[in-house]
Write a protein that binds this DNA or RNA. Sequence first.
DNA 1: GTCTATATAGCGATAGAC
DNA 2: GTCTATCGCTATATAGAC
Lengths: 204, 204
Amino acid sequence: MAGERRPRGEYTVGRERRSGILQTALREFAEHGYHGTSLNRIADRAGISEAGLRHHFANKDALLVAVLEQRDASSERLPDGQEPLVGVADLEHHIAIVEGNTATIELARLFTVLTAEATTRDHPAASWAVDRYRSIRASIEQGIRGGIASGEFRDDVDAARVARQIIAIMDGLQLQWLLDPEAVDMAADFREYTAELLTRLRGE
Amino acid sequence: MAGERRPRGEYTVGRERRSGILQTALREFAEHGYHGTSLNRIADRAGISEAGLRHHFANKDALLVAVLEQRDASSERLPDGQEPLVGVADLEHHIAIVEGNTATIELARLFTVLTAEATTRDHPAASWAVDRYRSIRASIEQGIRGGIASGEFRDDVDAARVARQIIAIMDGLQLQWLLDPEAVDMAADFREYTAELLTRLRGE
DNA sequence: GTCTATATAGCGATAGAC
DNA sequence: GTCTATCGCTATATAGAC
């Protein structure tokens, strides 16, 4: 982290350029998927030439991965030094996430489209998607286990299975909402699901 | 429907050709999505020239729509003259569908990938996907309503919401299964979900 | 760090012969 | 009904000037 310094201005300009490209690329990948997006188009909309864009990202795969990893880093990190949420608090936290997603439709579409694309052969986001889902499953499973340990939930609850179910509901409702926003209120539906789940987790 | 006849052989050859192309196209679209698939590739794998393929399907959009509509027609039709299933029987029917999907991973991927792609701008399958989901929602909602009418289910059940939830679980589990088949037993998870749902629908 | 120019390949689509 | 040939366009990617 130490070492020679460079004029601050250079860094700032470089980072802003890079970050602007990532922002534009996110929108394009979300609107057209990986194969449907061209570097030329991203470059145009970011106000740079295609060759200029390539100075920052060697190829299309690298740009996609950079977009996805940046979003993971910014959305899935807990505030510094905070204990992981467990039990009811974790479920309520997921309600807040779903409510937040209704306000960022572009980001929601990015994840929906690219995760589904990533189930196909040789997709550049394949390992990103698999790892991400394993990590999310483990995290929610821990939240459920924490609820069992604290006595909030029954001790015969299958935490791993409940975790898969929560994720499935979130993704499935989001898909229906993206297809037909007027017909599906995903936040309301998820809130209802959570209430039902809670009844079940707390026992008869 | 009446009018001049042609030698039977010609029809048969034509239909088999067409059907072979559709089969190959289905596999390619499932493996690479719409934008990731090229007509040239489909033609090669179907053992025909690209121009030959174009004799049967005028353009790429038409071919995709033909693939999707053929699969809808073959998978979502009830046996002739059969009454629609309602209540518990309809839920059990959906368990059978999910179990069937585990044996046809290619078809499952086709629907997952193309439905997600269809949430993007100007996708050729957009209206297919929206219409399909409206139709499935309505069909399951009717099944739930039938269960209420017959007294199997409580009469304060929100049939439309339950329908959205069932579809969400099916799609969400399928996505996790496609990404990580060893980690997710979607049929078992769906069976468990259905059992829990049934308890709730039948009341305290 | 950004540009113009260009290489190379693949795409969807059309025309016309057989 | 199927083919070869080809058009016009766009894609990713590279080289080298400023």
